[in-house]
Computed example of a mutant assay.
Amino acid sequence: MNTMQSSGIQATSDQPLLLNVKNLRVHLRIGDQIVRAVDGVDLELRHGECVGIVGESGSGKSTTARAITRLMPNVSMAEFSGDIRFNGRDLLGMADRDLRRLRKNGGFSMIFQDPLGYLNPTQRIGKQIGEAVSREGNALSRDQAVWSLLDEVGLPDAKNLARRYPHELSGGMRQRVMIAIALASRPKLLFADEPTTALDATVQMQVLQTLYRVQRERNMAVVIITHDLGVVAELCDRVYVMHTGKVIETAATQDLFATPQHAYSAQLINLSTRLNPMERLT
């Protein structure tokens, strides 16, 4: 267990599974070819646990997350199969209406790597966060919920910031707005897909600090999708290493760094430039 997680809420092996994925397959039809983007992935996650999925671009890590959350883009599928259980409920067989209800009511959320691609440039920040907040209550209670979420993710002067547009914010501020939107439904599970891509080192650290603090305060399970082993060292209890659509190794974070069992895992570790930053987030 890394230093940060030992100072917060720890997931233990006797806790029930929040997410249980078995033999997940996502095969895409591209022209005359079948691309096995995800090819037999098994994955488990417990309440309050932070898990990393790592691998180079094209390894299948983001497709795995999108498949689990049923947020796949409109592509030609040759196969989409397996067993995905969230709190014991079958996600793969769930009707779209029930899936939308689950996302809006404490199920799971996702943070994407390109905030500008997902934030509406014509709407104020407060309106976009407010749309993700429960529709119960009056406009003032929703405004207060928006301000509270902005405070929670460490953005100052929440009332003023809620009136601004995405282009008026820095990259790090936009990413924290995305975190606020993802937190609005009070999810039990949060997926963060390359949450610090294209941010400078200082801003990366601020975003990671926000994720780490919120995960501990809410006892929320988090899946970090990244190619950066430094991020994994800072945040994650366990790691799944993916290569060509398959999980080739899974281990506790400390064990992976100390004794990687697969040559590809060792290569990723050797290429990482930030392997011992854990104490910076304590």
Rank of each mutant, 00 (worst) to 15 (best):
V133Q: 09
S81K: 11
A65N: 09
G82A: 06
G55W: 03
Q113A: 10
N138I: 00
E79K: 13
D114R: 01
T63K: 04
E79D: 14
G137E: 07
N105C: 10
M94T: 05
G117I: 02
A65G: 15
K104N: 12
I111F: 09
M94N: 13
R97D: 13
L92F: 01
L91D: 01
R124E: 13
G93I: 08
G82V: 03
T69I: 10
I68N: 12
S62A: 06
R103S: 11
G106L: 06
I129A: 12
N74F: 03
Q123I: 00
N105F: 07
E136I: 00
L71E: 10
C50H: 04
V75C: 10
Q123A: 10
E56P: 04
T64W: 06
S57P: 03
I129S: 09
D90E: 07
G52F: 03
M77T: 02
D98V: 00
R97I: 00
N87P: 04
D83E: 15
C50W: 04
R124C: 10
I53N: 00
R101T: 10
S59R: 02
R101L: 09
N138A: 04
Q144I: 01
N120Q: 12
F86K: 10
D83V: 01
G88F: 05
D83I: 00
R103K: 15
N105E: 14
D114S: 08
N105S: 14
K127C: 00
G93L: 13
M72L: 15
L92T: 01
S76C: 05
G55Y: 06
F108Q: 08
A145M: 07
G130S: 11
I84D: 05
E79M: 03
L140I: 12
P73I: 04
F112D: 02
A67L: 08
T69Y: 10
G126C: 05
A145D: 13
K127W: 11
R70D: 04
G93C: 13
N105G: 11
A132P: 06
F108K: 11
G130F: 10
L119F: 09
N87R: 12
L116E: 11
G137I: 02
I129Q: 07
F112R: 03
D96W: 01
L140Q: 15
F80W: 05
I53T: 02
A78G: 03
S62C: 06
D90K: 09
G106V: 04
S81P: 08
A139F: 07
P121R: 13
G82R: 00
L99I: 08
R66L: 15
D96C: 01
R89W: 01
P121E: 11
S141D: 13
A132R: 06
R100V: 10
G58S: 07
D114I: 01
V146Q: 12
